[in-house]
Write a protein that binds this DNA or RNA. Structure first.
Lengths: 206, 206
DNA sequence: CGACACATGTAACACGTTACATGATTTG
DNA sequence: CAAATCATGTAACGTGTTACATGTGTCG
């Protein structure tokens, strides 16, 4: 959904063509999230089909411009006003992995947590370095707030990574605490077990 | 990718059938992320096609069990060991929206930030309430660590929401600071403007 | 009996990525 | 001229959601 709305938002500044829209998107997000050019065209097709944009045709220079329709403009305005709050927050792969890890016997949860923290710390260092580098260079040529936008995106990554590290620390403590109390490996099967037992070749981490 | 790997991870505890896998997934993540049952079956089909699981056939009770193959077991073990670190972090719709908002004239960024913070604070309160409620109730019947897993998932949501609020506060300050210095509304167009000007019906937020 | 949970699927569609095909223009 | 960039698309596939169809078993 973000691509669709991003294109609508970019078109509020006037008609644009596909290639231009991708460049504008990547510039404004500081190239953090590359946007596939093929998807731009297919999304524009869908937007036109749904009556949110209008095809202005070839301008003679080989550029196929699109403009917002009235409902497209309303949709873009609504996107900016309505807070993003899906009923179910987007799936967090790391949280799922850890939840499955603590419920699966034979998984080295400690190692998982430490490996993940190392990876996140490295990513955080990359972001911090990128933030130092940015802003000092030449203007990329976007509007007056293009640098601000890229900076905010970078800082969003930083805040997220920091939170992930804090959560991992918290998980490590919680897992250790749970392990100190009796951790019985599936003593009483709560559901009727399938007739076929787990194969004996099951891997163990130690 | 998370669904595919989640199913593999659940199957490390022995053969299961589709409906059972969904129940196990939702129980272990505390019903935070509902898993579509149709997707379970199509994913199992793909896993079988790729040689990661094996169809044990109907067990006579109408249950179609699947078991891990050797490569499926290796894949699951690898998923637990390898840290989740995609080259490009998953798109953050809120960050994209804010980046586009500060580069788009006529958008009330202040209002956007405040509306989003309110929504996130409400979500945070929901999570906190859910955390208080959980644990006190009866055992759901999962393994000994099912409660722990659900708790960790909830806390992941809490840590993420808190980070989002902090980031929004930071953005508000940064935007105010940028506004205090000269914010010229697109004085010098950096790219050649399209011939068609933006329609005069453009909405303004105030 | 009727409602509900259990259980397995299919179809259609939205969204996203990768790879490929095609041609114009610019630049070393 | 050759390579890179600009520009527009198509095809195939993976992933995810919603809705529908179908049948069994259980319980009030």
């Amino acid at each position: 959904m973000s691509v669709k709305h991003s294109l609508l938002a970019l078109l509020t500044q006037g008609p644009r063509y596909g290639y231009q829209l991708r460049a504008a998107f990547e510039e404004c997000t500081g190239s953090t999230w590359p946007l596939n050019i093929g998807q731009v065209y297919t999304t524009l097709d869908r937007l036109e089909r749904d009556g949110l944009v209008e095809d202005l045709g070839d301008d003679g220079a080989g550029h196929r411009h699109y403009a917002l329709t009235a409902s497209g403009r309303a949709e873009a305005a609504d996107w900016f006003v309505q807070p993003s709050r899906p009923q179910n927050p987007p799936r967090n792969e790391l949280a799922i992995k850890l939840a499955l890890a603590v419920t699966t016997p034979g998984v080295d949860v400690e190692r998982l947590i430490q490996a993940q923290r190392s990876a996140t710390v490295r990513a955080l260092q990359d972001y911090t370095r990128a933030k130092r580098t940015a802003g000092g260079g030449a203007e990329t040529g976007g509007g007056p707030d293009t640098d601000l936008a890229g900076l905010l995106v970078l800082e969003s990554l930083i805040f997220t990574a920091e939170a992930e590290i804090r959560w991992l620390d918290h998980c490590e403590a919680a897992v250790l605490r749970a392990a100190r109390f009796g951790r019985r490996p599936a003593a009483v099967p709560p559901h009727p077990q399938p007739s076929t037992p787990a194969p004996s070749s099951q891997r163990r981490s130690r």
